[in-house]
Amino acid sequence: MVLLFAEAGWDLLNPHNQGGRHVRQWARVLVGMAALLLWASGATVFAVGYGAAGCGPGSVVANPKNETGHQAYAAAVNMSAGSNLYVISIPTVQQSAITSGTSNCGNSAKIKNYAAQDAFAQSTYQELAKEMAAGDGETVRTLAALMGCPKEQEAGFARFVKTSYPSIFPSDQVSSAEMLQQLKAEMSRDPELAGACRSL
């Protein structure tokens, strides 16, 4: 690209260069310039990819509609002006989980727990997979808390998920919801965890 550009540049400086050839050379230069500009700006700038919540004109409340491709999650907050309805709902890509899950304050605590587990597992799926395989970590301990396991059981939970890893992830195509389902099935077969963890 740079070569093309430089070549065009030299041509224009040629003292014999006159008249009609100008148009073509202009075109070549402009094409070169445009390509270079595009290439350079592709590096980064001003292409606001996922709505990075930052500090400035582009810091957006992440918009759930745009999140299908990647994991930038919606700041799923129900705030409608005027009614003062300001209910924190559990964020998830699946909007259904929001509506059926937690934004309705009338739902039972149990359903809220499930929604919270779902949302958490979905958002942190890859971290969970890694920490479950390793048998410890912050994310896996947090999941233990969401499962209602008491603090004493956290380490046991982390060990348990490690040993049951192949059953919790029976294939390489397991969704976070399926993973949770498998995990709970495995836990309910474990006498200790089944008794201790309240939100299975």
Binding site: A43, T44, V45, F46, V48, G49, A52, A53, G54, C55, G56, P57, G58, S59
Partner: peptide
Amino acid sequence: YLANPPSMYGHT
């Protein structure tokens, strides 16, 4: 995060 104008100065 320089690659995104609104995040250039960080965020709190």
